[in-house]
Write a protein that binds this DNA or RNA. Structure first.
Length: 416
DNA sequence: CGTCCACAGGAATGACGGGCGG
DNA sequence: CCGCCCGTCATTCCTGTGGACG
């Protein structure tokens, strides 16, 4: 009975409250707007590079750099969409294949997407990579078309698999008779070039475009543009907009970040029944995004990663501000015994610590303690309370947050 | 000024479950 | 159903190293 009343109230408020969003989707990452403020130069340049396609010529391979949220993907997709439209009216046989290398993950799946783009049917798995490569090549040549392959976040692929694959792709034109292939590589990492074989680099970056981060003013313009479509009239105060832009500008000028902030702030405001997004909503959104990110990361850890994190947590609780690898491994082994997991090797735990560092749950840095060795100092990267909160709700590790390791008291005695 | 600690982190290899062609 | 290859995780073995100590 009471439940129903509560729900009534919630629904009632949702209906009556002023609407903040006109179209929430406009603030999503995958939305490609019709206007991309402050990217006219890049659009023009990229357009010039791919233009030969309209005369059924191969266009140059292109390399594109820029940090996340600088509009790389949006510009590329925007231009290629327009190009596709144009080629269709002109009857040019163009195909475009967009692949995100980080999401795609492996060479196999990358080739599978390429085959897909050429309408070559391949199984999800089971074939040799070489076989897939051949099928793709055959499919491409049979189609007698121009193919533009966009490899987004290509640095991730090379870091994980090496540059052999890129080498094969850049050389493919030599053995194609009826078709031509062009590559567009997109990288977030400016130092990516150094990882590449010079031969691959020279053929891949026949042309180069760099996307500089947006500054606060530019971010403001972008937000303003999107607000017109996404939000109701007057739903955003000017102060909130510039705060949003400023926060995102501080974080490498990331437009994606700015849009996330705005969207979440809008949700917060709407839930409150407010008609207008204020500075305060933006601040709340900032905290909420971070909080959700951490909780999500914590929940999805593998058991052993949880044990490693729990070890750091316990050391932290025992006033060991920054533990070293050896200490952590010692505590970790004890926790393993306690929970009936067989302990992994120190090498592996070291790897897990690095993974946790990348996600931001730990902060680690290599230090030399001279005579006493070279190791890693590791601190918790997040509030202790969050670890406790999440782990307490996880039956497998719940008991650990209250445990006091034996080796800990020994260790501190030894050191003092 | 050389030593030597306590690891970092690369490379090679193996175990394992999944999924396919034949 | 077999044999093959896949990707993932883990182990083993290894070489490299910053700097306090003697």
């Amino acid at each position: 009975m009471q439940n129903i009343n509560v729900l009534d109230e919630v629904f009632e408020r949702a209906v009556k409250s002023a609407r903040v969003f006109k179209n929430r989707n406009v603030l999503r990452h995958d939305y490609i707007p019709d206007r991309l403020p402050h990217r006219e130069e890049q659009i023009r340049y990229f357009g010039e590079i791919v233009a030969p396609v309209l005369k059924t010529d191969r266009c140059s391979n292109i390399f594109i750099y820029g940090k996340t949220g600088t509009g790389k993907t949006a510009v590329i997709k925007y231009v290629l969409n327009k190009l596709m439209g144009k080629t269709q009216t002109l009857g040019v046989p163009l195909r475009v294949c967009y692949v995100n290398c980080r999401l795609t993950g492996t060479e196999y799946r990358l080739f599978a997407s390429l085959c897909n783009a050429m309408n070559v049917k391949v199984p999800f798995t089971g074939l040799a990579v070489g076989e897939l490569f051949d099928r793709f090549k055959a499919g491409l040549d049979a189609a007698a078309a121009l193919l533009i392959v966009v490899l987004d976040e290509v640095d991730e692929l090379v870091k994980a698999r090496g540059d052999m694959l890129l080498y094969e792709l850049t050389r493919m034109n030599e053995s194609l008779i009826k078709s031509k292939l062009s590559l567009v590589g997109i990288s977030n990492d400016l130092r990516f070039k150094e990882l590449l074989d010079p031969r691959v680099l020279s053929s891949l970056s026949e042309e180069e475009i760099v996307f500089r981060p947006y500054n606060a003013t530019e971010l403001g313009d972008i937000l303003l543009e999107r607000c017109k479509l996404a939000l109701c009239e007057g739903a955003l105060s000017e102060g909130a907009l510039s705060l949003c832009a400023a926060l995102a500008a501080a974080e490498h000028g990331d437009a994606r970040r700015a849009l996330d902030l705005l969207r979440v702030a809008g949700e917060v405001a709407e839930r409150e029944g407010a008609a207008r997004i204020t500075d305060e909503h933006i601040r709340v959104a900032e905290k909420r995004i971070e909080h959700d990110r951490i909780i999500d990361a914590l929940k999805n850890l593998t058991p052993h990663s949880k044990l490693v994190l729990a070890s750091v947590y316990l050391l932290n609780k025992a006033n060991v501000a920054s533990a070293i690898t050896g200490d952590i491994y010692e505590v970790y082994c004890e926790l393993c015994e306690l929970t009936d997991y067989t302990a992994l090797t120190q090498r592996r735990v070291s790897g897990l610590i690095n993974e946790l560092d990348v996600i931001g749950l730990l902060n680690s840095s290599v230090v030399s303690m001279g005579r006493y060795g070279r190791t890693k100092k590791i601190r918790l990267g997040i509030a202790r309370g969050l670890v406790k909160e999440v782990f307490a709700g996880d039956e497998r590790v719940a008991c650990l947050v209250e445990y006091s390791p034996k080796c800990l008291t020994d260790a501190s005695n030894r050191r003092s």
